[in-house]
Design a protein around this nucleic acid. Structure first.
Lengths: 209, 209, 209, 209
DNA sequence: CATGAATGAGGTTTCATTCAT
DNA sequence: GATGAATGAAACCTCATTCAT
């Protein structure tokens, strides 16, 4: 998924334009990573990127457009890495695949968790971005189900919904640095166990009261 | 958990002061809920609360202090409601207790999710608040473990960590309106099943590679 | 006519507020007079007035509001001066009254013609201000008709419309400094003659083709 | 009157250059007519005209030069149309000629009054343009006097000054939509009567006090 | 020559905070 | 204590102009 054309002022048809965008996005991410939303002014982005403020506004109609484009880009990168991780373990055992997926879930946050956290929340009310995020998670879920050799149609929607999100809860908590007591390795083991459980095809849900 | 005394300019010894704080917090929460961070100025808070901006600054040394105090208050409210839900089901079966806890997890977001989402991000880098949030979740976890009659000490820390967080992932996603396809009831059933699984005392984690 | 309350952020109930407004208006007028629209920035107005930019924005919600208020104020002043001039010549002969009116028409522009020129055109498309200006001219027209002892009802609307406007044409041209060749005194004589002609009650218009 | 050579970067010797200028002027006029000064950027003019911003700057040294050239062009067009109207009624009766002149006075504003109003104000302090405008009106005045068979030399300068300007006042007011009550036809009749009066050769001005 | 990406000074406006009353 | 008018740094964004291609 690339940036939606309507949020850019010029289409990134040329290589140079694409590079310019990369630089701007990188500058924005760096500022978010170091300052966390505070101090993220358009002038600061321009300065950090090495372009003038005018150039920045020739690519994006306003600050929100820039951040939306960055968010979509991060979503796409996450999805690609996830798919890559599954592909790299194609044909292995279910647990190996699940472990790869879980590990990948932790990995991309390593250097950029503040960036994603900021974007995630900034657009919590943005319908279009929420839809995009939802679609990404849906595709990740289907990718995982297919990779372990299950039939996606047979799994109830609620469980599919939970499948990735329940793993994202602890991941998010770890990213938020809620606790340093927990070693990543042990957490990974537990998450693998959890996902394997949720992948069980024959399980019945708890009966509603 | 009460407001930390050092961020207030006067101790809330008097009832009137306490009421004033309540009004200020309520005004802030209303503005966050309706405007979501945009338009949350100290002047707006003062006007909505009915107090002057000067009065507001006699209670809090700056805007951040006010929001920190509000965050701590929301954490405390969340914890109290959770404990209440467990208490109300004391002595019932494990599934009933878990279901009550899960259901409570959905409830508080109903009217205030924008408020909590905003605060969550705003203080994502605030070590003290993160510690407070961690403590709250720890106590909630221990409360749940005790309520179902298990021994908290026997459960490995990683699983304790996951216990609440894995449920919060789907809850958060549902609250964020990522998907309307999933009905709350089916989601609840699945979450109950998930938590019951994680409470199994004899389970062994997946072996690390 | 005072400033419409809805374009001010606070009502000028207090004397101090009224003085502050006077100072701001005066600063704006000075800048218009010396720079003529170019260089009329809100920061420049604030600096010239001696108040901070924030204070300026506590009185007016934006730059346009300030200029609209100034325009209405100038209209009102013009109308008041015109009425005063008529009153001062009450009971004199028709020509004396008309001459006083014409002379007053030239007078107020003496020091401020750039201010009025700028405002006049800036709001050429502003329906509300055009209505206000129209009303002012209507009242001036009726005042003049009454002052010379004629019956306003008996005069056809088109001629009433022309009565003041035909004098405003040369006045405007003089203000615009279209020509220095014309001495004000001779121009005044000609305008008096013109207005006296238009006041003739029994004249028939040229027949339309 | 052509564009003054010194404000153009190249002489419009070639037909293609002339056409390019026409297109640029037309684009500018359209933007003024639809946006009225707001949104009249050089980039917008370039885009609307179909030429690049660089090309635009090869014809005019800056934005002001472009607008000055446009103003001069509009003056010239106005003058030509007026002369044409007089010519078309050559040899008819005085009233017919005056009526044609008055009617022409209304016409050109019909489609372009925003353009002319804007230019009029923008260059209100520009001595050279004011002189040009004055010359245009002077020539129109002399043209009218000659067309009705009078001797221009015999008419006092102040009255000559007033001759066109007094008609322009009501015309301008009507164009500005100050009043919808006045139908153009009745207004025309009154204006014809006014101009005929001012053309009376034997009239004596009101005596100065 | 024509182009249009890039520039950056400068414009409008907001809002956290102070302090005289 | 309470008040709210005043402050001014700093944010977002525009647009006239240049110059490498």
């Amino acid at each position: 998924m690339q940036e939606a054309p309507e949020i850019l002022r010029k289409n990134p048809v040329q290589r140079r334009t694409r590079q310019t965008l990369d630089v701007i996005f990188e500058a924005t991410a760096q500022l978010l990573q170091s300052g966390g939303g505070k101090g993220l002014s358009t002038n600061a982005i321009a300065e950090r990127s090495g372009f003038s403020i005018g150039t920045l506004y020739s690519y994006f109609k306003d600050k929100t457009s820039l951040l939306r484009a960055l968010a979509l880009r991060e979503f796409a990168r996450q999805e690609a890495q996830f798919a890559e991780a599954l592909e790299a373990h194609r044909g292995r055992g279910r647990e190996a695949i699940v472990r790869a997926a879980v590990r990948q879930g932790f990995a991309p946050f390593a250097g950029r968790h503040r960036v994603r956290r900021y974007l995630l929340v900034l657009f919590g009310n943005d319908a279009e971005l929420q839809k995009a995020l939802h679609d990404v998670v849906e595709r990740m879920t289907e990718g995982l189900i297919a990779a372990v050799g299950l039939d996606g149609e047979a799994m109830p929607p609620a469980r599919r919904f939970i499948l990735i999100r329940s793993a994202l809860g602890p991941i998010r908590a770890a990213v938020m640095r809620e606790s340093r007591l927990v070693e990543a390795r042990e957490l990974e083991d537990e998450l693998v166990r959890l996902v394997l459980f949720l992948l069980e095809p024959d399980a019945a849900p708890a009966r509603s009261v």
